[in-house]
Design a protein around this nucleic acid. Structure first.
Lengths: 238, 238
DNA sequence: GCAAAAGTGTTGAGAGTACACCCATGT
DNA sequence: ACATGGGTGTACTCTCAACACTTTTGC
């Protein structure tokens, strides 16, 4: 850190932007974690993130950290604010509040490639939060859990699932996203196809086809907008 | 202000908690606004709120401001975090980020009663944001709009509507809440009654009755929990 | 009795599910 | 030919909205 001192008439806070970066790799929902290089929690795992600079919009800081720590550019992702965590004792360094963001991406470059945090890695979320959970620094386990729940519920009533797909994708690829994120066995392919095609303004046909290893080639689509889905894709919660 | 100076190694932020306090008065959705007593925007209207103290949880600060500026106690309200606004230039005093909260309440005491801000008042939201909108300080117009939208959508899939009702209420009172907040003409009383009674774990009958000016007396209920509604109460968005 | 509001019954339209079936490709 | 996944058709179920109707009060 620099020797510069900052002075204020008001109680002093520092603000960080922390990121819950989610993607799908090998048919599993994965989150980007970094190994901390300094105190506190040195060597422990944490969400990527960092301090917001003095004259930087918080959202801009989130995009900057995303590029620095994950090598992801704004046009590769969907980013939205999750919530702010501000318990007085959440950071041993002092009074730090963090604004957390959920980031969805289809691009999943191995994060070691030329980034600040060479110790970044993708881990399946069910391993991080599951039976023998990975211990995360600060309150990051809570932030991660909140971020995953946000992503799950957003799939229901927005077209956000497309953010996990490449720019041009098939209905089956979109269906896999729903199955993986919701953790359900199999959505009926026929019904899913019809349902998703019935939603106005969600998918636009490209005219291209994509051949898989087996079976009939499928049409490809691009997501049209971020508008709410009508009707929504509801998950069963009996 | 005190003469105390605060010093830090990190970029300095101040953090405020701002409140979108909503209630229903005279069959209209109303928001609590205060007249600012100091610069900037002195004399202008703003959302109630204030600085978070140095060792105070942000949520606790929200409850404190709620009591100081509106005379409302935690048990009288439902409070939930809305989002954080952190544009670098949003406050002319310096780098201030605000964590905004949505507060729903049935109690609507006239706010002048013994509070810090004797200049607080309830205003109908459609007058504040409508045709000739009231000008609000900072980015508070945006915050208010976001808060109202949050309240509207929360009515669909949570039992939050009950927060606008007294502790013991009738199905008709609950129905008025939906009509007023969503701005719809009339929900069918019969269908609404059946729908709301079909939701597990939402309403518990008290055994009491309430007589209105006219018509058959109705049973009264208390809201049972904050659990999600299944099935949800969906609003039409044709 | 009449008006008004609570609450119930009935019915018809539409949405969702299960599943049969056809289509287009690789092997 | 046959296996595989894309995509469509069909019929049954369930939900929901419209609205008729009964109940219980005040006037």
């Amino acid at each position: 850190m620099s020797a510069t001192k900052y002075v204020s008439d008001f109680p002093i806070f520092s603000v960080t932007a922390d990121l819950v970066v989610l993607t799908i790799r090998d048919d599993r929902l994965c989150v980007l974690l970094v190994k901390r290089g300094g105190a506190p929690f040195k060597g422990g795992m944490a969400l990527p993130g960092g301090f917001v600079q003095a004259s930087e919009d918080i959202e801009r800081a989130a995009y900057r950290e995303l590029e620095e720590e994950a090598g992801l550019k704004p046009e590769d992702v969907v980013l939205e604010q999750l919530r702010t965590y501000g318990a007085a004792d959440r950071d041993p360094r002092g009074r730090v509040v963090t604004v957390a963001w959920v980031v969805l991406t289809a691009d999943a470059p191995e994060p070691t490639a030329g980034s600040d945090a060479a110790d970044a890695m993708w881990l399946p979320v069910d391993e991080v939060l599951g039976g023998s959970p990975v211990s995360l620094a600060f309150d990051h386990a809570q932030i991660l859990a909140d971020g995953i729940e946000r992503a799950r519920s957003k799939l229901e009533y927005t077209g956000l699932a497309a953010a996990f797909c490449p720019p041009e994708f098939t209905v089956a690829e979109l269906r896999r996203v729903y199955e993986i994120v919701w953790g359900v066995d199999t959505l009926d392919p026929g019904n899913f196809h019809r349902k998703v095609m019935a939603i106005e303004g969600f998918l636009r046909e490209t005219g291209n086809m994509k051949k898989e290893a087996r079976g009939r080639p499928s049409r490809t689509y691009v997501a049209e907008s971020g508008v709410p889905l009508h009707p929504p894709m509801r998950r069963d919660r009996r």
